[in-house]
Simulated assay, not measured.
Amino acid sequence: MNRFARSQRGVSLAGRTVAVVSPRATLAGTASWQGRPRRTTTESGARATRGAKQAGFTLVELLVALMVAAILVVVAVPNFRSMMLANQLTTRANSVLGALSAARMEAIKRNTSAMVCGDAASGGSDPLSAACDALPASERAGAVFLLVASKATSIQAGLGAGSLTMDGGFAAVRFGGDGLAHPAGSSAPFDDTVVDLCTAALGKDNHRKLTLSAGSITRIQTLSGACS
Rank of each mutant, 00 (worst) to 15 (best):
M84Q: 14
L100K: 12
S150F: 12
S138L: 09
S129D: 08
L223P: 03
S213L: 01
D126Q: 02
A171F: 04
S7R: 13
R174S: 09
L223A: 09
A149E: 14
H207N: 07
S95L: 11
G118C: 04
G185A: 09
G124Q: 07
S32C: 00
F190K: 08
G142P: 04
S113C: 01
T193A: 11
A184C: 06
F175A: 08
M105W: 13
L85S: 09
G98Q: 12
F170A: 06
G35L: 01
S12N: 01
A107V: 14
A86S: 15
V144H: 03
A184E: 14
R50W: 02
P183A: 00
S224E: 02
F145I: 13
R81T: 13
R16M: 14
D196C: 04
P37K: 00
L89D: 11
V11L: 15
T165D: 06
P23I: 10
V20T: 11
A143D: 08
Q34I: 05
G51Y: 11
C227Y: 11
Q156V: 00
H207S: 06
D192M: 02
L128S: 06
G142S: 07
L159D: 07
A137F: 08
M83L: 06
S82Q: 15
G225V: 10
A152K: 09
L27Q: 12
